[in-house]
Amino acid sequence: MSKAFSRIYIFLVFFFLYAPILLLIFFSFNSSNSNVAFNGFSLRWYEELFHDEEILRALLNTLIVASLASVISTIIGTAAAIGLSNFKKWKKKAIMNITYIPVLNPDIITGISLLLLFVAFNIPGGFITVLIAHITFDIPYVILAITPRLRHVDSHLFEAAQDLGATPVNAFFKAVFPQLIPGIVSAFLMAFTLSIDDFVVTFFVRGNAFSTLSTVIYTITKRKIPLSINALCAIMLLCVLTVLIAVNIFDKRKSREEFK
């Protein structure tokens, strides 16, 4: 097929994916409260966003839950991946199959099954239940991200370190851990993104008093659609872009250094 056709096709698909989001951002600069008619440039929705207690509180909640959940799940998940690699084969396989459950389950099933657990033990929905739920769906991704990297770890280094008198714990942190750092970083970022992004699981286990960004957006847009939501979308996209560009530059610089 011709090159021109493939270019046009790629452009059209990305246009389809981006047009709604870009329009949403465009209307965040609208001076009136309309998502369809532009009445002039203004920053009032950004101002309203920063005065909106409900959204700011939810933003803070989201960041707290995502940070805690990703740190805890990275620690538990990394330890699990290392420990599991020493399990007997069938035991390892059984546990890995369990690990796949939250990955494959539709979010709504993960959400209601945890809700049923909390209901059965009379645990009221709130910060703790949301945190537990996030850790639960984060850990499997951490384990699945770390496990393949473990195969490439040079275990001779671990033995050599011990031969040279290091305690096993010391040998681990000096000889093995550094080799795992890239895997751990990407696992952490993945867990963090999953937590920030989650709506469905949080929605079911949050109870009535605790909200995150996604659940607040869901409830707000059910009543009316304030354009401060658009402003929020613009800011979020800007943050993600900044991070992506930073990672890209960092990667390029690193590969250039390696090239030298």
């Binding site: 709506f199 847009t221 992506l244």
Partner: peptide, 22 residues
């Protein structure tokens, strides 16, 4: 690839809202 993954960072509710507006 980056362009493909970027919208995944905006959550589902917001993306669906954006489509609804259009």
């Amino acid at each position: 690839l980056v362009l493909l993954m970027l919208p995944m960072w905006i959550n589902l509710v917001l993306r669906t809202q954006a489509l609804q507006n259009i």
